[in-house]
Amino acid sequence: MQELAWLISLALIIVCAAVFLAVILKAGTEAKEQDIQGGPYRYRRPSFWALVGIGVLTAIVSLSDLPYAAQGASSKASQVVEATGYQWYWTLSRDEVSVGEPVEFRVTSADVNHGFGIYDESLRLLAQTQAMPGYTNRLRFTFQKPGKYRILCLEYCGLGHHEMPAEISVVAR
């Protein structure tokens, strides 16, 4: 997902820059306003509808599978980890889970806001939710590979914000 987000953003920024450059290169020449005004604005309405179309399609596809399913679900995952953030450490009700089976992380905080980010061994962020006092965010995630995963804090929580990594082992069934 990160690569896709990067590539789409990069492509859009380059297109935007190309349009600006093309117009900037023409800015020095002079034509009467009434001769060219129809030109630039002629494409605006179709562009509007094209962007609306792309936006609607993207929204339909991307909103069809949201990470909030566990929040209101009554069915219980086979593996549950109670995770609580403190200044500046995590407590996990268990630090070993099985690969290939959904894990439900019930994430909260005992003091201030924290962020519960699951990182793999290559330091790639796989999933996250916020840890907030008084609330429990349910994050359902299935690990695909065995190994050591790290929990990093992703919400600024004071001076020890960077010092509270925790570890979770994912083992074969």
Binding site: M1, A5, S62, Q128
Partner: peptide, 16 residues
């Protein structure tokens, strides 16, 4: 890139 990040499934791995 802000609009890209406003997509929930992207935000899931990009937020903060």
């Amino acid at each position: 890139p802000a609009i890209v990040d406003g997509t929930i499934v992207v935000n899931y791995v990009m937020h903060n």
